[in-house]
Simulated scan of single mutants.
Amino acid sequence: MTRRTTLNLPQLRAFLAVVDAGGFSAAAAELGMSQSAVSHAVASLERELAAPLLIRAHPVRTTVLGERVLPHARMALSAVRSVEQLAAEATGTMTGTVRLAATPTVCQGLVPGLLRHWREDQPLVTVRVFEGDSSEVSAWLEDGTADAAVLIDPPPATAGSYPHPGVQLATDGYRALLPRDHPLAEEPAIDLRDLEDDPFLISPNGCEARVRTIHRLAGLRFSPTHRVRDLATLISMVQAGIGVTVLSEVSRSLIPADLVLLPLKPDTSRRLVLTGPQNRLWHPALRTLADSAAGHLAHTASCTAGPAVGQPLPSRSG
């Protein structure tokens, strides 16, 4: 006779938290539980399945079975969130924790303002931020590590996805970053061709594909002198006069006083869109946060002279 297993949501929630946080201690902090309670929940899940799901190392890793269980556990919690959403919409009260992923420049340039607005507008919703490069952010949203993300130029919402296309937070133009004592620093705009003789710096984990496109549009060969991983290092090297680079407008808050960020020709930009996963239901609180962000942007645009920083995308019918 086959033994019948009895699983429960706290077990699955603890298992996912340990995997996503990389350890029991971090998972306990994420869940607001004691570490022993998290350990007990995962151990009881493993007993029910009669096999280990995790390799207790630093960081914690999944076993072969744990890797297979992972997507099903995410789907189970997603279904529960859908039920919670129905109840929340019926009562008009939204609560929960949303994990938001974004790139470093977005985290530092746009996210703080969003967090301030959401804290005032949706005080019962907690937003936790995960910072990664573009490929990591997309992967986290796809595999359920993140509930939401600010994506760069995402494709249009596809049929079968959650009926909310997301919110365009900004149209983010590209700019030339130069030392303030550079001969062209006082120009109203910079033609990339005028920087052809300057050593060019690039961060491979940033917007290299788009910077390559800008060079192609300008008829220039893309041949960076230095490649640095960290954005702060890139900015420091420009400060030191080692070279120049191209960053997006959202980076402006990170630029020190001895550097200038100037409009660039050819003129190119990217869309920064707050969205959820395309192929599964959104976290119950995410649509509320997206609608809140859209309203905030519309209000900001109506109160500000000149073009809006960003505007909500049109809602999709259905």
Rank of each mutant, 00 (worst) to 15 (best):
A14W: 11
A185E: 08
S138W: 12
R68N: 12
L169N: 03
T97C: 13
R270C: 14
L192A: 00
T225K: 13
M33V: 08
V129L: 13
S203T: 13
H164W: 05
F24A: 07
I152D: 02
V246P: 09
L151F: 01
A240W: 05
T213F: 15
Q85W: 08
T126R: 14
A57S: 15
S269N: 12
D20A: 06
V111R: 13
A176Q: 11
L192P: 10
V106S: 02
R252C: 03
D181F: 05
R280D: 00
N8C: 14
R175E: 04
P277R: 03
L217T: 10
H164A: 02
A101D: 06
P10R: 01
V98M: 03
G144N: 07
D198K: 04
E120C: 04
Y174A: 01
H117Y: 12
A17F: 08
P112E: 01
T95V: 08
I235M: 01
L124H: 11
E208N: 02
P312W: 00
M237W: 11
L49T: 06
S269C: 09
Q85L: 13
V60A: 01
E48P: 10
H182V: 01
P188K: 07
T268W: 06
V273A: 01
F15R: 15
E48C: 01
V238Q: 04
V137L: 01
T5A: 10
I55Q: 10
S253Q: 02
V127Q: 05
S34P: 04
E67Y: 04
Q85N: 11
V238H: 09
P204S: 00
R3V: 11
P59G: 00
V69N: 03
T275L: 06
H283S: 05
S135Y: 11
A189M: 12
T275Y: 08
D20E: 12
L110K: 10
L141V: 07
P224M: 00
D194F: 02
D291K: 11
L169S: 05
A185G: 06
A146Q: 06
L54K: 14
R74G: 01
V273I: 10
M75W: 09
Q311T: 15
A298Y: 03
V228E: 13
V127T: 12
V60K: 05
V309I: 11
A301N: 08
H72M: 09
L16V: 11
G306T: 03
L231I: 07
R221M: 04
L217H: 10
P156T: 00
S269L: 07
G66Q: 09
G276H: 11
T97Y: 03
A257M: 07
L286N: 09
H164P: 07
L110N: 05
L178H: 06
S25K: 13
R128K: 15
V38D: 02
L272M: 02
R74N: 03
H40M: 14
Q239N: 03
G173L: 07
L86G: 13
R193M: 02
A257P: 06
G173H: 12
V309T: 14
L281H: 11
T213K: 10
E30G: 03
D172P: 07
I242E: 15
L261F: 04
R287H: 15
L124T: 10
R193F: 04
R81T: 13
L247V: 05
A176K: 15
R287S: 05
Q311V: 08
L261H: 11
H226E: 14
Q85V: 02
G310S: 04
E187A: 09
E89A: 01
